[in-house]
């Protein structure tokens, strides 16, 4: 009589319980493994991060202005804040251009109209390197490559700059 009433037999009950617990244990082991396998995909990439440089798009004119900002950088032993700068202006096509101020010759800091003798050019004080306004190096001066250009994007009217890339 008890057999009729018992809808789940002892054997079945044990089977269910063991399957359930076993399943949990297997899942507990597999999930971290899976997570580890796909982990590199989930990591936010630090390269190509954009930083707010504190400049509103409305304030950008066709005269280059210098902006300075800081980014976090992990550099071997140190994690530090590194300062970066750019010369930002609107070019002939009214597009925003952000040039790196690092001279492509030996790495000095160039400035817009840095010499009175060369108006409307970027000038490097170290070896009189010169660049056109669009960053093109002027032949006959030491630099052999144009100034690097920052990746940029505009969000809510604020300029964000990424990494400087050679052209």
């Amino acid at each position: 009589m008890s057999e009729k009433k018992q809808q789940v037999s002892r054997r079945q009950f044990l089977n269910y319980t063991l399957t359930g617990v076993g399943g949990f244990m297997a899942a507990g082991m597999l999930v971290p493994m899976l997570r580890m396998a796909v982990d590199p995909v989930l990591q936010p990439s630090t390269a190509g991060d954009y930083a707010n440089v504190g400049l509103s798009v409305d304030d950008i004119t066709d005269t280059p202005q210098r902006v300075d900002w800081k980014v976090d950088q992990v550099d071997g032993w140190y994690e530090s804040k590194v300062s970066r700068s750019a010369w930002v202006f609107k070019d002939d096509k009214n597009e925003i251009l952000a040039l790196s101020p690092v001279c492509t010759h030996l790495g000095c800091v160039v400035s817009w109209e840095g010499s009175d003798n060369y108006p409307n050019e970027f000038f490097c004080p170290c070896h009189n390197g010169r660049y056109e306004k669009d960053g093109t190096n002027i032949p006959g001066t030491p630099p052999l490559a144009p100034l690097h250009v920052y990746d940029q994007k505009v969000e809510n009217g604020i300029l964000y700059l990424g990494d400087a890339k050679p052209r």
């Binding site: 030996l106 790495g107 000095c108 800091v109 490097c124 170290c126 070896h127």
Partner: peptide, 13 residues
């Protein structure tokens, strides 16, 4: 720090 910053500014020369 001071010397390091000057070097950064004029590093090419």
């Amino acid at each position: 720090i001071f010397a390091g910053e000057i070097e950064k500014e004029l590093s090419g020369r």
